[in-house]
Design a protein around this nucleic acid. Structure first.
Lengths: 339, 339
DNA sequence: CTGAAAGCGCTAACAA
DNA sequence: TTGTTAGCGCTTTCAG
């Protein structure tokens, strides 16, 4: 692996000059530039990222922190990640996905010594311990999500409040007055306090209260069984329910099964609206469900931008970017769910 | 951010001594060790990974390379990633997921200068250009997957050959003699030549041929529609088919719908076996499908081990580790699929 | 416009 | 057992 010094020797210039042409830091005459470039090519010079990082204090690498706990990597997560990575790449950065303890304990060695220039946090909890750690470490960071009080934190997030209101609007416009909400059960896990759930649940409760609607909330376990149990739970709590919001992708199918098993057909007896899901996930269902699709790509892109702006000294107001999910109606005609 | 020199000064020792206690490189008396540790604590010394990497030529970071193309991050992928990360962590390494161009073009700057000590490749194609790049770069690497000729490459992989034979065994034992295989359609994409498909298809063809069975192969598009179309295609090609293998998770549901739409009930008329899927994915289905579950966790762990052995100078034979999927039978009684 | 040289923070001989 | 010191490969003033 050729070093910069070797390139310099070969081109008959100083190492500083090579550095200048490599980084475009200073003007170098076309003639010397050419000589240097030739030497670089001949020696297959690639540059040493680590040495550069040590000298310049930047690596042009940013990390997306992902909790090691649970197996929470969904298609939606994937969209956040991929879109953020793409944007980072466009702006001359590399984005890596870094699994870290949800408590933030192993954050130090990652970040200390400038291995990464900044980080994006996702799967944020209302009182996420990682933000304190990151602040203490003085690492530039941006959230995909919001803590309880994110007023002076840079973030992009799904606008769950608006999403839920729109969802209820939609269902109300269909004539529904008795709703239910299915959430994942995170109690007792390290992901307890997961902000999207808290916000969704409280917005749901307040919205139905304001509008004088009935609103039941149940927590679902995993997979088809989780959904089936949730359906049963809902019907116990409110036998007259006519619409349910599900924010748990892997249980959505089971929910239909459960409803049908209890003699309800979808959407004739009960409307089901899947929320904060991805198109890719929704497309697996048949019959299609009405779905509030998460703006993951847009948010991933924005998150990368927010962080990189911070690093490169772009606009300096705190980014507080919220985007609601958008409704995608199932176009197919009514179909009975599973028997 | 305190430097090692500052710690040394504070503890009244030389910087070398601090380095020794930090890395456990040499014996240091308990007394001095204590002084150093105290100083480190007082100064909140964290150590500079970049400087250490430059001096020692190792970062203790390994990367799992993931193609930027397509949105191929499945629950199975997630299991590979998480388990490899966990194993790496146990062995004192960090594992990051690095999105790179499937052609391997942007591999240089990642790897040059020893930003990562080694890499694990996944989503491997039969003639994957990335292995040439990696070899040229002289970076230690391990594959999750196999190229056409991996005889002298370190790899761990699903044993697709055995998996398919077991699948056919299973179906044959159920009395089926007319089979079909559903694969993802990757033609024309950068992922064309994806090794699992090639191996699965060719093993399937040769196996049915040897045993004198009928074997139809169809390629499915995405989501429920993809599966429905695949079902129709199969029935055109072989109206008497009685068993189908699906290696496309998101289309499995649609396949059932399609079969049912064509008047076939599952599993009475047609048996469906989902292959190389994950438990998490399979659990979403209702009715449950018989599933050949991929040994992702075991393989992710092995991959990390193989790479780290290589790095730390463990056993030096080339790891060639193959594990077949294991059959998980749907316990539920027969149910009609979607209507 | 180009070069000299002082670091960046740490590791690892080699000495003592 | 601990200290000295020469790098690791590159960036970046500061001169010239």
């Amino acid at each position: 692996m050729a070093t910069m010094q070797q390139v310099a020797d070969r081109a008959g210039v100083s190492i500083a000059t090579v550095s200048f042409v490599v980084n475009g830091t200073k003007y170098v005459t076309p003639a010397t530039t050419a000589r240097v470039r030739t030497a670089m090519r001949e020696l297959k010079f690639r540059g040493n990222v680590v040495a550069r990082a040590l000298a310049s204090r930047r690596t042009r690498i940013i990390a997306l922190l992902f909790p090691t706990t649970g197996n929470r990597f969904s298609p939606t997560t994937s969209e956040f990640f991929m879109s953020a990575a793409e944007r980072a790449s466009e702006r001359g950065y590399h984005l890596v996905l870094w699994p870290v303890d949800p408590a933030g304990d192993d954050l130090d060695d990652l970040v200390s010594g400038g291995l990464v220039d900044g980080v994006i946090l996702m799967e944020v909890r209302m009182d996420d311990p990682r933000v304190a750690v990151l602040s203490a470490l003085e690492v530039p960071f941006t959230l995909i999500g919001r803590t309880r009080d994110s007023a002076d934190l840079p973030f992009v997030d799904i606008d769950f409040e608006t999403t839920i209101e729109h969802s209820v609007d939609h269902l109300e416009s269909l004539g529904h007055r008795r709703l239910a909400l299915v959430l994942e059960d995170l109690g007792g896990t390290p992901m307890a306090g997961y902000a999207p759930h808290i916000r969704t649940e409280s917005t749901f409760r307040s919205t139905v209260a304001e509008r004088g609607l009935a609103g039941t909330v149940v927590y679902a376990g995993t997979g088809s069984e989780g959904g089936q149990t949730a359906a049963a739970d809902i019907l116990v709590a409110d036998p007259d329910v006519t619409a349910v919001l599900v924010m748990k992708d892997d249980a959505a199918g089971g929910l239909l099964v459960g409803l049908y098993a209890a003699g309800r057909s979808v959407p004739d007896d009960v409307s089901v609206l899947s929320i904060a899901s991805s198109a890719r996930n929704a497309d697996q269902h048949h019959p299609r469900l009405d779905t509030m699709i998460a703006p993951s790509v847009e948010l991933g892109t924005r998150a990368a931008d927010a962080l990189i702006d911070q690093l490169d000294g772009g606009p300096d107001e705190l980014p507080h970017f919220l985007l609601p999910c958008t409704l995608r109606r199932a176009e197919s005609t009514a179909v009975a769910p599973l028997r």
